[in-house]
């Protein structure tokens, strides 16, 4: 199947997951919110189960078709650490990530989520532009 067709299909599965979580638990499928709650909040059991489901997905795919779908990182670990820290700080302060704002928030027609999504996509694009087209060769 063409990667773009698979992309739409994958997106539909993500959407079905969000709808299932809303229908059953009444919750937004925001990964940063769900996963960060594993560390802090009291209502933890369902959050742990959701994260366990996320982790089980590539293992199931590997068992079924011999390919987990997990790609190789493109930057070395110090940059992975910097990126992770920024993603953690940013998604908590900004109350959401690609799923909570980008998928669920836009589907709810939330102006906050629409603005947040535009901002993180633009900053992501600017960062890639800097890394690949301005600092290229300066060693990442």
């Amino acid at each position: 199947m063409h990667p773009w067709l698979l992309a739409v299909l994958g997106g539909v599965l993500v959407g079905l997951s969000a709808v299932l979580l809303m229908a059953m638990l009444g919750r937004i499928a925001g990964i940063s919110g769900i996963a960060s709650g594993v560390l802090a909040e009291s209502d933890r059991a369902w959050r742990i189960a959701f994260v366990a489901g996320l982790l089980a997905a590539p293992l199931l795919l590997f068992a079924v078709r011999g390919d987990s779908g997990i790609g190789t990182p493109v930057v070395r670990w110090p940059w992975m650490a910097v990126a992770g820290l920024l993603v953690g700080l940013g998604t908590r302060l900004g109350s959401g990530c690609t799923s909570g704002h980008g998928v669920c928030g836009i589907a709810r027609l939330s102006p906050r989520s629409l603005v947040a999504t535009v901002v993180f996509v633009l900053f992501g694009m600017c960062t890639v532009y800097l890394v690949r087209h301005v600092l290229a060769g300066a060693g990442t």
């Binding site: 992770g84 900004g94 992501g124 960062t127």
Partner: peptide, 19 residues
């Protein structure tokens, strides 16, 4: 909201991973 989204975007752009 804006500052958080900006920080997240920078981190996303560095490594290509969101949560």
């Amino acid at each position: 909201l804006l500052g958080g989204a900006a920080l997240f975007g920078i981190g996303w752009g560095i490594a290509g991973y969101c949560p």
